[in-house]
Design a protein around this nucleic acid. Structure first.
Lengths: 109, 109
DNA sequence: ATCGAACTTCGATGATCGTCGTACAAGGAG
DNA sequence: CTCCTTGTACGACGATCATCGAAGTTCGAT
C-alpha cells in the first residue's frame, strides 16, 4: 500500500539557521539534563548516538530531550543503521549568537 | 500581633555572584517578555523603575517576571521612595558566563 | 523469516509556569 | 490625616513540561 514512508519524518524536523529563535534555544538549554547532554556533545567534539549519552532518565525521556534540542536547532541528527547520530550545531549557533555557547560551556560546574 | 514587617523582605532576595546558576539564568531569559525586559535594561544603560518597562502584561505579571529575573541573578533592584529601581547585573553575568549576555543581545530581533 | 538492539510514539501523571484580578502595604503630596 | 501612585501578595486557572512504562517500528544479523 502507499506507505511512502519518510521514516518517522516528524522526528527529523530540524530548523535551518534562519529559523532558529533565541527564546527556543534558551528554553532548550535551561533544562539540567539537556544542558548536560550539550556539554557531553561539546566535550566529545563529534557525534554521539542516542545510547551514547550518560544521562539518568529513561529512554523515552531521552528521546523527548533530543527532540527538544533538535527542534530548537541546538543539535542535528541523522539515522545511521539502527542508531542515530547527534551533533552540536556549533557553527550555526556561533554565527547567530556569538559567544553564547562558549559562555554557557564556561559556566562553573 | 507580632508583625515585625521587614518590608516584604522575601521580595528582595537576590543571589550573590557565587550563587548564580546557569540553568536558572537560562530559564529566566527563555521567556519572551523577560528577554524583552532585559533588552530594554541593556539599551537604557542604567536603571529602570518597574513602571518604566514597556511590556504588554498586567502589573502583577510584571512583578512576577521581575522577581524571576531577580532571583535568577539577572537583575538587581532596590526600593526608592514609592518606586523600585532595576538594573542589569552585567558585571556578574559577564564574569560568570563571558559572552553569554552579548551573544543573546546580538540575537536577530 | 526470526530475533534482538536501538529508538520512537502514545497516553498518563504530577509539577511548574504565565497570566490575571483583587486586595493590600508603603511612600509622597495636599 | 487623607488621597493617589507604585508596587507586592494571594489565590486561581489553563497551558506547558519532564517523566515514565508499554507498545510499536526499523534495521542488521542469524
Amino acid at each position: 500500500m502507499g506507505r511512502v514512508s519518510a521514516p518517522t519524518s516528524s522526528t527529523y524536523r530540524q530548523p535551518d539557521r534562519s529559523e532558529i529563535r533565541i527564546e527556543t534555544v534558551l528554553h532548550a538549554l535551561a533544562d539540567p539534563v539537556r544542558l548536560d547532554m550539550v556539554r557531553q556533545l561539546a566535550r566529545c567534539e563529534g557525534e554521539l548516538a542516542c545510547g551514547g549519552f550518560d544521562v539518568s532518565v529513561s529512554k523515552s525521556t531521552l528521546t523527548h530531550h533530543l527532540r527538544t534540542l533538535r527542534e530548537a536547532g541546538v543539535i542535528g541528527s541523522r539515522p545511521m543503521g539502527t542508531t542515530r547520530q547527534n551533533w552540536l550545531r556549533r557553527k550555526d549557533l556561533d554565527a547567530l549568537f556569538p559567544g553564547l555557547l562558549d559562555g554557557i560551556l564556561a559556566a562553573p560546574r
